[in-house]
Design a protein around this nucleic acid. Structure first.
Lengths: 226, 226
DNA sequence: CGCTCTATTGATAAACCTCAAATACAGTGG
DNA sequence: CCACTGTATTTGAGGTTTATCAATAGAGCG
């Protein structure tokens, strides 16, 4: 029955049958890899939950510079607050791999909230976490060196999507050097050099769009200690 | 009766008498310049509105690096979501100049929200604006050069606290080169050099902790165009 | 008028980006 | 199974941006 991988944040604390009801009230979309769910500047008229796969949220500036704000993994939601306010949302959401999402429009989600008050509470929690995370990353971007930021990016991805393997913890989706660069505020060249170095000293193993962290402890120490 | 400078966001749409009632239900504090209202890591048990003066919100990392997240001007609120969740708030709030704040604890604000539903709506608006602003600044920090970011910082301050003067628009509170540096993700030296340059070409006039923007248009063009 | 905090400016160095070119890798179709 | 093609990655050389350090000057306060 539950075909999403993790317990969805927004619906935490609800029973399976309530969940089934809620999911049923949304509309579903199956998206191919690298398709755009919504685009920077679109009116945010829907809240989305990822049931399977993953979304990449990014922002673009006028000169073409791009950053990745975060990934939305299965069970997580996005555009929640914006969709309630009918504002334009300055973020693009693109699928990473085959991805299934459920969406609700504003009226539906408001109805759900009044039926299940837990949802409003969960929404507040989610919003708080998101603000804190962006601010934390803003601090890091402003005060830390590139390699430290790359380490932090990998560790965050490890925590959210890591898969235990005999050789270490695999970041379990296709992730290019350029993605890491846009997550860390640097260039793909610097990322490549850094990962090469870390490969040589045994902290990670990496291939084409694949990264395994073989010495998480070393990486954590490095990310915190200089 | 209204002794705060701007219409408070959180209480927009309420009548003066309702406002009076709400303000009355909070507790008030008068703070000297540079005093700390709450400290990074404190439990966020109160929501604050600035009635007079200004708060500087900053974050510190383990190595002592600091950023200024934003200023909270009179009429604005802070720690809103965090205070509803009883979480630690990773931000320090320090007064800039003589400052008067009103605070409400969680129970009180929840009561106010159920009496005046507009407050919950306004809260959502505020949260959305804050997320968007941090993300926007994250993008800028990641993709733009120092001088461009300094220009954007000054322009934001001009918009929120600018005061028309014969010679230009004055940023109306004491603001050091170091403050600007921590807002823009650079060092006070680079800020000083940049402001000197802009002073020479007539874009700004600056003194000790005082900045007047004499050619806003030029600065806007510069901030957007490279 | 000394003290303290802020700002300026020059010299130097470090971190990191940019550009260019070569190499590796994963599919695809024969 | 293999050559082919389009990406992704690596690596080197060189240049730019910006931080760091040091020293001086200016402003405000008691």
């Amino acid at each position: 029955m539950k075909d999403y991988v993790q317990e969805p944040n927004l619906f935490k604390g609800l029973s399976d049958s309530q969940l089934e009801n809620i999911i049923g009230s949304g509309f579903h979309r199956n998206l191919k890899p690298k398709s755009v769910l919504f685009h920077q500047g679109d009116p945010a008229n829907r809240i989305y939950m990822v049931k399977r796969g993953r979304l990449k949220l990014s922002m673009l500036n006028e000169q073409g510079g791009e950053v990745i704000i975060r990934f939305i993994n299965s069970g997580e939601t996005t555009a929640a607050v914006a969709s309630l306010k009918d504002k334009d949302y300055p973020v693009t959401a693109e699928t990473v791999g085959e991805t299934e999402v459920t969406g609700w429009d504003k009226a539906t989600i408001l109805g759900l909230m009044s039926d299940y008050p837990a949802i409003a509470i969960n929404l507040l929690n989610t919003v708080l976490e998101r603000i804190n995370e962006v601010q934390q990353r803003y601090l890091e971007l402003s005060t830390e060196r590139v390699e430290q930021r790359i380490a932090r990016s990998l560790l965050r991805l490890m925590q959210s999507t890591g898969l235990k393997k005999p050789e270490g913890i695999l970041i379990n989706f296709p992730l290019s050097r350029e993605d890491i660069a846009k997550l860390s505020g640097t260039t793909l060249y610097t990322v490549s050099r850094t990962l090469s170095k870390w490969g040589k000293i045994g902290w990670i193993k990496s291939g084409r769009e694949r990264i395994t962290i073989t010495d998480p402890h070393a990486l954590v120490l490095f990310s915190e200690n200089v």
